[in-house]
Computed example of a mutant assay.
Amino acid sequence: MSLRITVWNEGVHEARQHPSGIDEYYPDGIHGAIAEALRAHIPTASVRTAMLSDPEHGLPESVLADTDVLLWWAHLAHGEVSDEVVSRVQRHVLGGMGLLVLHSGHFSKIFTRLLGTTCSLSWRNAAEREVVWTVDPTHPITEGVPNPLVIPEQETYGEFFDIPVPDELIFISSFTGGEVFRSGCTFHRGRGRIFYFSPGDESYPVYNQPEIQRVLTNGVHWAAQPGIERAIPQVSNPERDWYLT
């Protein structure tokens, strides 16, 4: 069964041309670059893009019902995302849709709602080197990913990262300034699988790196559950003494 992938980007940086270099690195937007990479790595997949400015943010019920994995990139406009759309996405994740939250999407409404914490962190944007270390080489998301994965220039993220203890910690990053960060981790919510991956600032061509594209591709394959019945797990109360029959 071919995968159905939706790449969501708020698109604010592209619309405001800030930073100015985003046109050079991502002429079709960050969502366009990610979608193009996924089409190249998963040629049988159906890949669509959606943006904040689209009707219903490009995520009506029909699109989410037709999505195995949703990738979410956002930065400046978290508060502009409709609560109705967030609730719709949450329902689909709980029912089994995969979710990849990228970079500053850690502050998105959907991520903070699903994790139940502030998801805040320390940061500094000084074009420093990031070294991404694999800490779980048995995990399928790490397949074919070099250890370490070096990003020449990137925004610095650092601990403390206010998230629940991850179900699986896959990558940690170290930076030129000495910070360390849990840069790749997974969570399960309901029937859905969530992968957070921090590398990918709008100021640098991180998503053009083949190694980063490989991580995203692996993450999509891990999070996808094609054919799963999209239903939130329900709690039932059986009749008493059923075990005695």
Rank of each mutant, 00 (worst) to 15 (best):
L3Q: 08
E10S: 15
G11D: 13
G11F: 09
H13M: 12
A15W: 05
H18I: 09
H18R: 14
Y26F: 14
P27C: 04
G29M: 13
G29E: 05
I30A: 02
A37N: 13
L38P: 07
A40K: 14
V47L: 07
L52W: 08
P55V: 05
G58D: 11
P60Y: 07
E61D: 15
S62H: 04
D66M: 02
W72Q: 08
A74N: 15
V81D: 00
V89G: 01
Q90D: 14
R91W: 03
R91C: 00
H92E: 14
M97N: 09
L99D: 10
L99A: 06
L99E: 03
L100N: 05
L100T: 05
F107S: 14
K109W: 08
F111R: 01
L115G: 11
G116K: 06
C119E: 02
W123V: 00
W123D: 04
R124W: 10
E128M: 04
E128G: 03
R129C: 05
E130V: 01
V131Y: 03
W133K: 12
I141T: 06
T142A: 15
G144K: 12
N147M: 07
N147W: 08
L149R: 08
V150A: 07
Y157T: 00
E159K: 02
F161Y: 15
I163T: 14
P164K: 12
I170R: 03
F171L: 02
S174P: 04
F181C: 02
F187R: 03
R191A: 13
F195H: 08
S198N: 12
P199Q: 11
G200A: 05
G200M: 09
Y204P: 02
P210D: 15
I212L: 12
Q213H: 06
L216D: 08
L216S: 07
V220R: 06
V220G: 11
Q225R: 15
P226R: 06
I228E: 07
Q234R: 15
N237R: 14
N237Q: 09
P238A: 07
Y243F: 13
L244N: 04
L244V: 08
T245M: 03
